[in-house]
């Protein structure tokens, strides 16, 4: 099965993200007190460090649900229209260089086909 099957449904980060997305006060603490937030939700050190380092590969290896990974990056960088110049895409480019390069090449081919 696919990547989504790798998620750990019991991982504290997955529980934390559900609450952070819904709560403006928690979101406000993301940039000022991430470590305190992680402690309150019972995250392990590796989870905290993967979030701090904005590393999609480590996050997914730990069992963070893939759907939450871009949302974690949005808490750092904002939405930025999910563009190819976004900081979030740069994080994916570092974590998954082959997959992201293939996707960018595909987009170039498709844009060319229309152009």
């Amino acid at each position: 099965m696919g990547n989504v099957e790798r998620c750990d449904k019991t991982l504290p980060t997955n529980a934390m993200m559900y609450h952070v997305r819904k709560d403006a006060a928690l979101r406000a603490r993301w940039l000022t007190d991430l470590e305190g937030l992680a402690r309150e939700f019972g995250l392990g050190r590796a989870e905290y460090e993967a979030i701090r380092d904005k590393d999609p590969r480590r996050l997914m290896d730990l069992g963070v649900h893939q759907y939450y990974v871009p949302q974690i990056l949005r808490l750092f960088f904002g939405a930025a229209q999910n563009s190819n110049a976004s900081a979030a895409l740069e994080c994916y480019r570092r974590a998954f260089p082959r997959e992201t390069a293939e996707a960018m090449a595909l987009q170039e081919r498709l844009d060319g086909r229309r152009g």
Binding site: M60, Y67, N84, E99, A103
Partner: peptide, 10 residues
């Protein structure tokens, strides 16, 4: 593949 390794692929 929202958020997965192939996030930017269709």
């Amino acid at each position: 593949e929202p958020g997965g390794p192939r996030y930017f692929w269709v």
